[in-house]
Design a protein around this nucleic acid. Structure first.
Lengths: 186, 186
DNA sequence: ACGGTGCTTGATTGATCGTTCAAACAAGGC
DNA sequence: GCCTTGTTTGAACGATCAATCAAGCACCGT
């Protein structure tokens, strides 16, 4: 029920939801007071399920904290390929689609981003001394999200996953430079 | 007539266009066969006007090629601040909002991105030997776009321009590392 | 068997969407 | 003055949207 947001919020009609969920409008409105509450429910599901739905699958057999980051990015790559580049990060798409969002919705979007970057920040902390001592880990974690979202956007637009790959490659280069700088401090 | 796309495509109704342009529906449909053709016209305007509308204002008194990149990013920062973080790059927003775009529309979105990254690539070329010899300038230019779009997205979501600033700071750090690596090759 | 409670049904509502069109209008050429 | 050509007008259309609601149904304790 939460998976068909490939279409976006405005483009997904209540009728779409009904046919997909085998429900009637009355039942749906018995559970959710309005369409926006469905969106809120979905965003809460994402928020509460990031560990199980996203991190665990990607990190199953990865230990190295920095490789965890790129394993997560590779998970997005898989989704891009499997959807023929139609995939867009659900949170990112909604963040740009909803132009005057209800505060509750925006808070949930922000929370989802926050959880994501917190997870990355955890990896950066675990990487410890491999990064320069003065690294702003929070900013760097947000930068990883930035690279992911920007890469997804360009891959979708050009219908070519290579645009995503290049963003990841650049991010990888940035991390290698950081690791090098950590070894040989100025 | 092309400036009111802050609302997004789907959320902007024909009625909105009419009241804004002081036109009647018939006149509009005399010029544009359909709403989508209005979108196409706007995207073409952006595409053809990137030099005058975007690059020249940002680069007026900047010569250093790498500073040109950050001057351009600073132009986006200004728009974010002036719109109270409601601003989203029109192209990026549309790229994520339109989930099954007409080929013509998608091509125009891709062209807009292409022109943008080409402009950045020109700066990178002008920077010449300040960057490592083996730098993939096309990929790096796309990475700048990536950082910009991702930064805009997060600033909008959190309603805090600091998220954009941090993305720019990280990109700046990346460039500094690249310049350092160029000076002292392995 | 009964009444109550809560979920389900699906036709229906009013609003809004993008689009159309016959009629009115303006401006030139002849 | 009249016809032609091109533009403007704004009411109207059908489709679709999110949301409603009276009626029906299933399941419970008693």
């Amino acid at each position: 029920m939460e998976l068909f947001w490939l279409k976006g919020y405005n483009s997904t009609s209540i009728a779409d939801l009904l046919s997909r969920t085998q429900l009637n409008s009355g039942s749906l409105y018995h559970v959710f007071p309005s369409k926006q509450d469905v969106l809120i429910g979905v965003l809460e599901t994402y928020r509460d399920g990031i560990e199980v739905m996203l991190l665990e699958p990607a990190w199953g057999q990865v230990d190295d904290p920095i490789e965890k980051i790129f394993a997560l990015l590779n998970g997005y790559r898989t989704m891009i390929v499997e959807s023929d580049c139609a995939y867009g990060c659900p949170i990112g798409s909604l963040a740009l689609e909803l132009h005057e969002p209800d505060p509750k919705v925006r808070d949930l979007l922000a929370e989802n981003f926050q959880n994501w970057t917190n997870a990355i920040e955890g990896c950066l902390d675990a990487a410890g001394k491999r990064l320069p001592r003065d690294t702003d880990k929070k900013a760097l974690a947000q930068f990883v999200l930035t690279a992911m979202e920007g890469g997804v956007m360009q891959a979708r637009t050009h219908l070519d996953v290579a645009y995503f790959d290049r963003a990841v490659t650049q991010l990888r280069a940035h991390f290698e430079l950081l690791e090098k700088a950590a070894k040989a401090p100025a």
